[in-house]
């Protein structure tokens, strides 16, 4: 009854009203306008968006773990402060995205259930461990760099609440990438030990960062529909190429090498050529067989479970206050 259309006014499924609504939807997409929460939308559009936005939110939340891992050990007070602020931003981004997802008519608790039981996923990059301080820099430089590449086009995504959340996020994100680059630059121009630390981090994070853009275009099943719906603006391979082109010169400024013997500038193409990605590793990690998958989910579930008594208490208190207020009102009248 409260679904996408009211049978009482809409007519039977497939009837004239439905076709009007589909046409209206198509027109909006065609004109690059925004679809808003109360608009009619194909069920598949809604489902795809719920999945995509929620998984983006989950990525932010799970991403707090590998980075949070270094808060207590940050090697200077300034770096500690910057890192806390960054992780705090990630929590905030997760909240903006859950908020956007909820406009599609699904509760955050349900989304968390789907994360906890594996029905929904998060960015596979966070299934890798942060083994040294430089990893924090690598995540800022490479992972946030890759995320920005994905995110800027999403600011023009067809679904209004998602696009607006992305605008907010992008404003805050550029500090994250600069911060990562700055950490690595300081390390690579520091002591031999620091330089080795930075190189080690880049060696481990480079390929997983390339995998963040998803499978090659020919294997990406959902892309065509998502593109038609204005959810996806550029293909996986396009974004991946852009990322390599942007990042390779930055690596030179850092004085760090990227672990790819095939990486070189191709003047003819006007792009960097790069080596083959290990898609078996990608598939393995997506499936759950990565270094940290089990740990990330376990800790996430634990935080949620451990917090249940707190959430219940707050709700119980609110209910008591409501009852009290109602009693007082009754007495006054």
């Amino acid at each position: 009854m409260y679904g996408n259309y009211d049978p009482g006014t809409a007519g039977s499924p497939g009837g004239p009203h439905d076709q009007d609504a589909q046409q209206r939807f198509d027109q909006l997409i065609e004109a690059d306008q925004r679809i808003e929460p109360r608009d009619w939308m194909p069920d598949a559009y809604r489902k795809t968006l719920i999945r995509q936005i929620a998984q983006h939110a989950h990525s932010e939340i799970i991403g707090m773990q590998p980075e949070g891992n270094w808060i207590t050990r940050a090697p200077s007070l300034r770096r500690k402060a910057i890192l806390i602020a960054k992780v705090q931003d990630e929590a905030g981004h997760g909240l903006y995205l859950y908020s956007a997802t909820e406009t599609l008519g699904i509760d955050r608790e349900e989304l968390l259930d789907r994360l906890h039981d594996g029905r929904q996923k998060y960015s596979s990059i966070f299934n890798y461990p942060t083994l040294n301080w430089a990893d924090v820099g690598a995540i800022g430089w490479l992972v946030d760099g890759a995320a920005i590449m994905n995110q800027v086009p999403l600011c023009r995504c067809s679904y209004g609440p998602y696009a607006r959340a992305m605008v907010r996020i992008c404003k805050e994100e550029s500090f994250h990438q600069r911060q990562g680059f700055d950490i690595l630059h300081t390390l690579s121009h520091g002591t031999p030990g620091q330089k080795a630390m930075a190189q080690d981090a880049v060696n481990r994070y480079w390929w997983p960062s390339l995998m963040m853009f998803g499978p090659p275009d020919e294997e990406s099943s959902h892309s065509a529909q998502s593109t038609a719906w204005g959810i996806k603006r550029f293909s996986n391979d396009e974004l991946r190429q852009r990322f390599v082109d942007m990042t390779a010169p930055q690596a030179e400024i850092l004085g760090l090498s990227l672990p790819d013997d095939d990486l070189r500038w191709n003047a003819e193409r006007g792009h960097y050529d790069f080596g083959a990605i290990d898609w078996d590793e990608f598939a393995r990690v997506i499936r759950g067989d990565g270094p940290c998958n089990a740990e990330r989910l376990r800790r996430r579930r634990q935080a949620h479970d451990d917090g249940e008594w707190v959430r219940e208490a707050a709700q119980a208190y609110a209910d008591k206050q409501d009852k009290q207020a109602a009693r007082q009102e009754a007495r006054a009248s």
Binding site: I61, M64, K80, A91, G92, G94, R300, A303, R311
Partner: peptide, 18 residues
């Protein structure tokens, strides 16, 4: 700082980090 990513609600992660 130890509470980050463990708080009872994501809104609390933010509050404690703040």
């Amino acid at each position: 700082g130890e509470w980050v990513a463990h708080a009872p609600q994501i809104e609390e992660d933010l509050a404690l980090a703040n």
